[in-house]
Design a binder for these strands. Structure first.
Lengths: 222, 222
DNA sequence: GTCTGGGCATGAAGGTCTTGGTTGTTGAAG
DNA sequence: CTTCAACAACCAAGACCTTCATGCCCAGAC
């Protein structure tokens, strides 16, 4: 799950970044409206967090332009307390939710889960396929009835793959979305984490299939 | 050592970031000229790597404005191969060095060491104080005659402190320069690394002094 | 001198990522 | 059909980073 955060306040953006990353989100951060718009239009994100007051170009303008260009990425806008108009304008322009500053990062995380779930089709917070099921909110993973403990990275990887069972993901795609590496083909970290998941998930049959020369996929069963 | 890299090419900026971080530099990265100028003027860096061809605002313009405002941060400009004029203009405008694309990141690292050394006064590549000496290029650390092995973080921390023996650095300052954390006062990672250094450096007397309620400093001896 | 709170020290433990060797697969040559 | 080289994938081990919990110690209050 990749999120673009456009927020100029360093302290706040730092907290947001850390909070989201601890939950397994991959975060791109920028502090400037123009830069934010450029990133939002040139890359794919699963959601955006957009401050209204920004240097360079305000958040509402960015949001309007995104929607005009039919970019439907879920957006949560951040507004100053009290400025009711900003909130209303934001929602009118196609924001999916808003938060008033100051707020708890945990709450932002929860709302991000909501809007991304809403966007990922079914609106469900549980991904399941075969005997594997994965609760995106509580971060519980079950294989059959047995609960499995996963680390943050492992969960991020598994949930990324589980969003499209049967679809093959290349290592480069996985690196991009799960690690935010746009480069460095010299790493085998994806392979390593696939092995970790296989070991932990070890059920009947291969849950994660290798597609030689291409990448990996979840065996489709549901 | 904190470096601002302004470069729009993702792949290249990724490589640069990784290469510099592996050497213990702390890297801020941005892909846009306006944003780059804003960062360069509002924060302190030990050096900048500046591409000439940039969206938003070209590198030469940034460089000219920085120098007009008497910001003397060492700058290495990146130019396309063949464009001799760019190089000459860059040097005329106050660049400290240039590199033609494509280049090896190792070379960039080497030149960064050169320009930062030049800027840090003496132009020396060896910091020493008392019986501790620290070679910024080869990354060798000695205490008396004995060589010490440090990890990247440990080296970054020690070299940051050693640049100003006797000066007290707060935990916040250290976090900012060595970890690039602008936030999260809830971590004691600085303390932990200070302990690691103390253990590895264990010579006669305390090399790193605690200033209770404030921070840490290198005991001045030279 | 004694008490006490906050700042600091320290070890343990878990997570992340890299390294390098081993195994397995593919495809072409013999 | 068999062999072999090259490449892809697998896996174990270890280094490094970071957090957490606990205990120590200094400074000021009494």
């Amino acid at each position: 799950m990749k999120v673009l955060v456009v927020e100029d306040d360093e302290k706040l953006s730092g907290f947001i970044q850390k909070g989201l990353e601890a939950e397994g989100f991959v975060v791109d951060l920028c502090r400037d409206g123009d830069d934010g718009y450029a990133l939002a239009t040139t890359r794919e994100y699963d959601a955006m967090v957009l401050d209204i007051m920004l240097p360079g170009r305000d958040g509402l303008s960015i949001l309007r332009n995104l929607r005009e260009r039919d970019i439907g990425t879920p957006v949560i806008v951040l507004t100053a307390r009290g400025s009711l108009n900003e909130r209303l304008d934001g929602l009118k322009l196609g924001a999916d939710d808003y938060m008033m500053k100051p707020f708890y990062v945990e709450e932002l995380v929860a709302r991000l889960h909501v809007v991304t779930r809403r966007a990922t089709g079914s609106g469900k917070s549980i991904l399941s396929n075969g005997e594997v099921s994965l609760n995106l909110v509580t971060r519980e993973v079950r294989i059959g009835e047995e609960a499995i403990e996963l680390t943050a990275r492992e969960f991020a990887l598994l949930s990324y793959l589980m969003r499209s069972p049967g679809r093959v993901f290349s290592r480069a795609q996985i690196c991009e979305h799960v690690w935010n590496y746009h480069f460095d083909p010299g790493t085998n970290i994806v392979d390593v984490y696939i092995q970790k998941l296989r070991k932990k998930l070890a059920g009947d049959g291969e849950i994660i299939e290798t597609v030689r020369g291409v990448g990996y996929r979840i065996r489709e069963e549901s």
